[in-house]
Simulated scan of single mutants.
Amino acid sequence: MIEEPPLLTVTKDRRRPTEAQIAAFRGVPTGFVCDAMDGSGALDAAISPIGDGRDIDCVVAGPALTADNRPSDLLATLAALHYITPGDVLVGGASGHQGCAAAGDRVMGMLKNRGGAGFVTDGPLRDYAGIVKVGLPAWCTGLTPNSPFAKGPGSVGGEVTLGGRLVRTGDMIVADRDGVVVVPFERIDAVIARLAHVSELEHALDADVEKGFCDPLEITEMIADKRLVEI
């Protein structure tokens, strides 16, 4: 017989990036962050800005506080509100369940009241007009009016798997209209160190394209040294 789990499990000893580390990601496009991680780090494209970012400025950079919920449940997400540090991005896992909302406008309002910077989930949200009124950046898989339950069990402050990636509390979340990127806590400094170089390369290429550059593969040179053969 399986023993009944506790209703909620909360990890209180949580790592968190420094304010300087957090600031280093503010205003940085998600594409730059992925490039600094060798082209990876983004959650599945199904997790996108609510309303495609039409009505809310969906841009955020902050530490993850995770809430791991069972399908159709949001008890851990509600509990996580108590543990929010201002600037945190609440990552509310819904076990990928699409049959009901992972949260709605009241949860977004309470998260904003606690100082949360944004919300990320692998489920839909509900109460779009109310969420727009709250104005908190949010990323989800879509919208549904179906309601979740709050029965548990769930966990807060540990880790959650969503969008094809493992997210641990303290990882950096960098998100914009292109999507959500997760920077593992252990890699934060290494990624920050690479961001300046990535930005320099990106801006240089932008300038070249504006001047008319249109041959990124240098086809003529590839033909000359036989890397490319025309038949």
Results as ranks from 00 to 15, higher is better:
residue 118 G to F: 11
residue 56 I to G: 07
residue 104 G to A: 14
residue 31 G to L: 13
residue 123 G to E: 11
residue 19 E to S: 01
residue 179 G to I: 02
residue 41 G to M: 07
residue 82 H to V: 08
residue 120 V to G: 03
residue 144 T to F: 14
residue 96 G to D: 05
residue 217 L to E: 13
residue 9 T to Y: 03
residue 14 R to C: 01
residue 212 G to M: 04
residue 4 E to T: 11
residue 184 P to G: 01
residue 204 A to V: 08
residue 164 G to H: 09
residue 218 E to M: 07
residue 84 I to Y: 02
residue 17 P to A: 02
residue 163 G to T: 04
residue 79 A to N: 07
residue 190 A to C: 02
residue 22 I to M: 06
residue 125 L to V: 15
residue 124 P to T: 10
residue 85 T to C: 08
residue 209 V to I: 14
residue 81 L to K: 09
residue 161 T to N: 00
residue 212 G to A: 06
residue 174 V to T: 03
residue 5 P to F: 01
residue 113 N to Q: 14
residue 190 A to T: 04
residue 58 C to Y: 05
residue 180 V to L: 02
residue 223 I to S: 12
residue 35 D to E: 15
residue 196 A to R: 13
residue 2 I to Y: 05
residue 153 P to L: 08
residue 198 V to H: 01
residue 98 Q to V: 08
residue 54 R to C: 13
residue 138 A to Y: 04
residue 14 R to S: 00
residue 86 P to T: 07
residue 217 L to M: 12
residue 144 T to N: 15
residue 72 S to H: 15
residue 163 G to I: 09
residue 172 M to S: 00
residue 158 G to Y: 02
residue 206 D to W: 11
residue 212 G to I: 06
residue 87 G to Q: 03
residue 221 E to T: 11
residue 126 R to T: 15
residue 39 G to N: 05
residue 5 P to W: 04
residue 5 P to A: 08
residue 84 I to D: 04
residue 20 A to G: 00
residue 160 V to L: 07
residue 77 T to Q: 11
residue 193 A to P: 02
residue 82 H to Y: 10
residue 8 L to K: 04
residue 32 F to N: 01
residue 130 G to Y: 10
residue 120 V to P: 02
residue 13 D to W: 00
residue 56 I to W: 03
residue 115 G to M: 07
residue 138 A to K: 03
residue 64 A to W: 06
residue 127 D to A: 15
residue 166 L to Q: 09
residue 110 M to G: 06
residue 48 S to G: 09
residue 103 A to L: 12
residue 155 S to N: 02
residue 183 V to I: 03
residue 75 L to D: 05
residue 23 A to K: 10
residue 171 D to V: 00
residue 67 A to F: 09
residue 109 G to N: 11
residue 100 C to F: 10
residue 73 D to V: 12
residue 227 R to S: 12
residue 195 L to M: 09
residue 96 G to T: 07
residue 13 D to H: 00
residue 152 G to H: 10
residue 52 D to T: 12
residue 38 D to Y: 12
residue 181 V to G: 03
residue 24 A to K: 04
residue 8 L to S: 03
residue 28 V to H: 03
residue 171 D to P: 00
residue 182 V to R: 11
residue 143 L to Y: 15
residue 58 C to M: 09
residue 217 L to C: 10
residue 183 V to D: 04
residue 218 E to Y: 09
residue 148 P to D: 13
residue 45 A to L: 13
residue 227 R to N: 13
residue 185 F to L: 03
residue 118 G to N: 03
residue 59 V to W: 07
residue 97 H to L: 01
residue 174 V to A: 04
residue 115 G to L: 07
residue 114 R to H: 05
residue 69 N to V: 06
residue 63 P to D: 08
residue 14 R to F: 01
residue 136 L to I: 14
residue 128 Y to E: 11
residue 90 L to K: 01
residue 213 F to R: 07
residue 225 D to P: 07
residue 61 A to F: 12
residue 35 D to Q: 15
residue 14 R to H: 00
residue 29 P to L: 15
residue 42 A to D: 10
residue 67 A to N: 05
residue 141 T to V: 13
residue 137 P to D: 08
